[in-house]
Each structure stands twice: as structure tokens, then as C-alpha cells.
Design a binder for these strands. Structure first.
Lengths: 100, 100
DNA sequence: TGTATTTTTGACAAATTCATTCAAAATAGA
DNA sequence: TCTATTTTGAATGAATTTGTCAAAAATACA
């Protein structure tokens, strides 16, 4: 149940790399990466894709992790969070079938 | 499977009220309400609560509709949309159990 | 038709949020 | 302690959101 931040921090620490190295690859300030790892900032799509490339993990897995983090953030503190997520699922399924 | 906008437009038309009337109750310009009804603008929490009050419907139902709209919007155009919603659900459940 | 009413649109401004940079402070390890 | 790394927060600028307003478009209906 790791967040994107926790996931990439673990990966980075496994390889014993400083923030600097990964940040350079992403072409961002290391302060930003530090914040992303601790969930204080949102990564953008491009950064997630590059992170997957850097750590050689499946891009889609990391994208799901990133997207779901954003969703959780969106409904945080709402009593109706779970219900809203379930209804959103229905809506997405409905839209999908409608588009065919 | 109605969006918040569709829901409140139907309610307003049932009662044959002009945008003006509902907008006045919400204390917003009728242009904004027009856009909310057609999904071009997001309502805020306060407006949703007032709309429920105005139309005398359950506040929670309208909040779920509003929240789920935002979630759908967030994952729109993403292939991983459904998966992300499911993972987000797991995360919310996990956080809930953890907070106890 | 013509007229009144309602709805939609888009330009604009204000307010708010968001991302980024930077340097200093805190932390960790030898 | 010395050094490298990480975290923090203030400052800035960019981007997004929010609302106002007036005109245009659509609608209703005599």
C-alpha cells in the first residue's frame, strides 16, 4: 500500500543513491525530489515516467501508484470518500461502454 | 449515472425555475450556475451543500455526486483510470483502519 | 413575426494555488 | 568534528481557478 513517494524512496535507498543523482536524471532540483518522496509535492506525469525508466520498473505500475495517490488526496477528509470512489468507478465504466 | 450538473438541472427544470433564482440563492452569478450545470465549471463544497438545501435533497447524495465527478475528471483520458480508482479505494480503506 | 425572457459565451480581472529556486538548517555517518 | 546528504521555508513567478459583466444566442410565446 505504498505511495509513489515511499516506493521511489525505497528504490533509491536500495541502490544507495543520493537525491542529487535521481534529481539530475529527472532534471529537477533535489529539493523537489525530496518533497515528492515525502508526499509534500505531487510529481507530474513526465516525472513519473522518467522515474520508472530510471529504476527500470513498469511504467504503468508507477502511474497507477501516482494516479491513486492523487485520488486519495482529492477525497481526503471526506466522509463520503469510499462511496465517491465507488461511484466514480461506475461512471468510468459507464463512460467507457458508452464511447464504443 | 448523472453528473451533479445534470442532476441539478433536472431538479431546476422540474420546478420551472430560471437560473437566476437558484443562482441568487447560492449567491453566485447565473453564468456560473449555467456552467456548473453543463459541467464546464466545478462547484465548490459550499455550493453543493446549498444546492442540496435549496432542492431539499440529501446533502450526502449530492456530495457523493460532486466528489465522484471530480474523481472522474482527475483520471479522464488515463488508460489506468479504473485500476487507479481501485487502488485508491484500497488506500482509503487502509488509511481508515490505520487511523483507529 | 416581434418582443421579452432565459441561457450561453467569452473577455477580462482578481484571487488563489502551484511549481520552482535557493540558501540555510538539520541530520547522518566516518 | 568534518563532510555529504537531506529537509525546510521564504521568495518568486507561472499557471489555474474564480467570479463579473455585457453581449450574443437561443427559446418561448403573443
Amino acid at each position: 500500500m505504498d505511495s509513489l513517494g515511499e516506493t521511489i524512496r525505497k528504490l533509491r535507498e536500495e541502490k544507495e543513491l543520493p537525491l542529487r543523482t535521481v534529481a539530475a536524471f529527472l532534471d529537477i532540483d533535489q529539493a523537489i525530489l525530496s518533497k515528492i518522496e515525502r508526499g509534500q509535492r505531487n510529481a507530474n506525469r513526465e516525472q513519473v515516467v522518467k522515474l520508472a525508466e530510471f529504476f527500470k520498473i513498469k511504467e504503468n505500475e508507477l502511474l497507477v501508484s501516482w494516479l491513486s495517490d492523487k485520488l486519495v488526496y482529492e477525497v481526503a477528509d471526506e466522509d463520503m470518500a469510499l462511496k465517491a470512489l465507488q461511484v466514480a468507478e461506475e461512471k468510468v465504466k459507464y463512460n467507457k461502454s458508452k464511447r464504443k
